[in-house]
Design a protein around this nucleic acid. Structure first.
Lengths: 104, 104
DNA sequence: TTAAAGTACTTTGTATTACAAAGCTATTTT
DNA sequence: AAAATAGCTTTGTAATACAAAGTACTTTAA
């Protein structure tokens, strides 16, 4: 480690993408509209964040038709889960440094 | 709150700027070179991050000459300290959601 | 004394990112 | 059949992150 401040996975370090991952962690699968409502983000914005997570292979996006309507189901991959673990580990270390700093 | 996912102060939500704030929390004041070495970031990058923190009034930057050389001393403001508290509070909530999600 | 190297930054240029508005395709309602 | 709705994607723009180059000195070495 080059510095005591670990890198923070930039794909996860975004409010919207972290929220997406948390929701996927909780509900195993989710659809576009659900994520949109829970996070309170615009269609376009959500679309690009999902694209990014998919490119990084942190999520798997399954598109199919249900009742003749497009239905996108999104789920976390193992890679995504691992990346989240690493990310939260690092983040906790930052928080630890903060509370340590306050005590001095 | 429009969503269960709180906003995360975008000024603080940056690895470099969070690191700057943590270092200031620990040592009260710091200079440019110290921050640069501790964080492992380029001159230009650090300069712009400091500028941003200064514009937001989260830090106070004092420039003076010491031993005929420019010496920049940086310290956290009360506003910065408050913003950090709010930020870490929200961040802890995200982490809580993560560990809650894992248990399900 | 003056040229080269170092210190302590700031400015500039570029590539990446975040975001919303507008667009697209298909369906449902009137 | 037209208008409204659903479920997205594409596009345009503004903000961000970053390193390379630049500025303004001071120190060292020849």
């Amino acid at each position: 480690m080059e510095s005591k401040f670990a890198e923070l996975d930039s794909v996860i370090h975004s409010r919207v993408r972290l929220a997406i991952i948390i929701l996927l962690l909780q509900s195993e699968t989710a659809d576009f509209t659900f994520l949109k409502k829970e996070i309170g983000v615009s269609d376009g914005n959500l679309s690009t964040h999902l694209r990014k997570l998919e490119e990084t292979k942190y999520i798997k996006v399954q598109k199919r038709f249900e009742h003749r309507k497009p239905k996108t189901t999104i789920s976390l991959t193992d890679k995504g889960r691992e990346a989240l673990n690493e990310y939260t580990k690092n983040l906790e270390e930052y928080l630890r440094l903060v509370s340590e700093g306050k005590k001095l």
